[in-house]
Design a binder for these strands. Structure first.
Length: 366
DNA sequence: TCCTCCCGCCATATT
DNA sequence: AATATGGCGGGAGGA
């Protein structure tokens, strides 16, 4: 039985998501040739210093052959965080009081997606040798990290948007690391600019601000701020401003936290706090490399873009709450010192308008 | 109090 | 039908 799946032809890659349909188009455009991706039958090579586990293939075989064992192990593994001896620990737990038992459980923080993502990333080199097999088996990773596969998807989906991995087959991804990260970010940046995400968000902020003076209006599905912004450049597919009302945003926000965790683990963004009139506010600032936009006519839609739009257009940080992903229009210098006082909203709006005008006048119309 | 986001159900997509 | 994928939101830990 061939457990390594049939040789993969890149051109035949299925694109399971509407979203990644576009994403893969760009992927195909910008992805450098990583050499023969069609060598899955080759046994895993372990280059020196690389964190591939030597027993990976064996483990995969075992888990493929025996799902019951895998499940059992996974449950035991809850207490087996790489210390081994699950039996002994289970034994131990039987004699613990409820309170003690609770304490012995991993804390919520220990189970965070950010930490998991760090563990995930630690398994692979930043700049893998494209000549060797860089396959990732999701099942295997989930098992080794003692998490449900669902969590691995959380990570891999973001990495895929950044083209740090690409889908190879069912349950399999190829690890690219940061080889083409800057290029991807450049593409994302230009897409963000093409779609005027930053301007759209400024628009939302403006509406939000205006709404503060009108208490008779409240957010609803028929949120005026959504309707009131027919896209100015002719594109009807401006994903951001077409979002429905506050319920949707609240639901969105949880996803953004997930994504923020992964991006933080990649050191692309960093959590900061800024002070507004109403108090401290959590925000993120871009800590990744400086990116120059690539020219690209292709549209991409993903949360990554929503993030990216915060980054382009001189918007350096944003908060995820209150009540929608909330931009903080502060300079990068301000963002770097958390204690900087936050300018009044009026001042912000003035700055935004000025910025917009400058942009429009300096940049020739496309 | 409210930011954060784990967890896993379950709908949908793929094989 | 079986399995893979991932949308989604309840509700709880933590600051």
């Amino acid at each position: 039985e061939n457990l390594f799946f049939e040789p993969h032809k890149r051109g035949l890659m299925k694109t399971p998501l509407k979203e990644s349909t576009a994403a893969n188009r760009v992927l195909a455009e910008i992805q450098p040739d990583f050499g023969p991706l069609t060598t899955p039958t080759k046994p895993k090579e372990i280059s020196p210093g690389e964190p591939w586990t030597p027993t990976a293939n064996l483990k995969m075989l075992i888990s493929a052959v025996s799902p019951e064992i895998r499940n059992r192990d996974q449950k035991r593994g809850l207490f087996d965080n790489r210390n081994g001896l699950p039996e002994a620990k289970d034994c131990l737990h039987e004699h613990l009081s409820g309170d003690e038992y609770e304490k012995s459980q991993p804390s919520r923080k220990e189970k965070s997606l950010g930490l998991l993502c760090h563990k995930f990333l630690a398994r692979y080199p930043n700049y893998p040798n494209p000549a060797v097999n860089n396959d990732i088996c999701l099942d295997e990773v989930a098992e080794e990290l003692n998490v449900e596969r669902r969590r691995i998807y959380d990570i891999v989906n973001v990495l895929e948007s950044l083209h740090m991995v690409s889908r190879l087959a069912k349950n399999r991804y190829t690890w690219h690391g940061r080889h083409n990260l800057n290029q991807t970010l450049g593409t994302l940046k230009s897409v963000g600019e093409e779609n005027k995400y930053a301007e759209q968000i400024m628009m939302i902020k403006k509406k939000e601000y205006e709404q503060e003076f009108d208490f008779s209006k409240s957010y609803s599905i028929e949120d005026p701020l959504i309707k009131a912004n027919p896209s100015q450049n002719g594109h009807s597919d401006m994903c951001f401003v077409e979002l429905p009302g506050v319920e949707f945003r609240a639901a969105k926000i949880r996803r953004l936290y997930d994504i923020a965790n992964v991006l933080s683990s990649l050191d692309l963004i960093k959590k900061v706090h800024v002070t507004e009139e109403r108090g401290r506010k959590p925000a993120f600032k871009w800590t990744g490399p400086e990116i120059s936009p690539n020219t690209s006519g292709t549209y991409l839609f993903s949360f990554i873009h929503c993030f990216w739009c915060f980054i382009c257009g001189n918007v350096y940080s944003f908060a995820l709450t209150d009540p929608l992903p909330h931009l903080l229009f502060i300079s990068s210098a301000e963002a770097s010192q958390n204690s900087a006082p936050f300018p009044s909203k009026m001042a912000q709006l003035a700055a935004i308008c000025k910025m917009q005008l400058e942009e429009q006048s300096s940049e020739p119309r496309k």
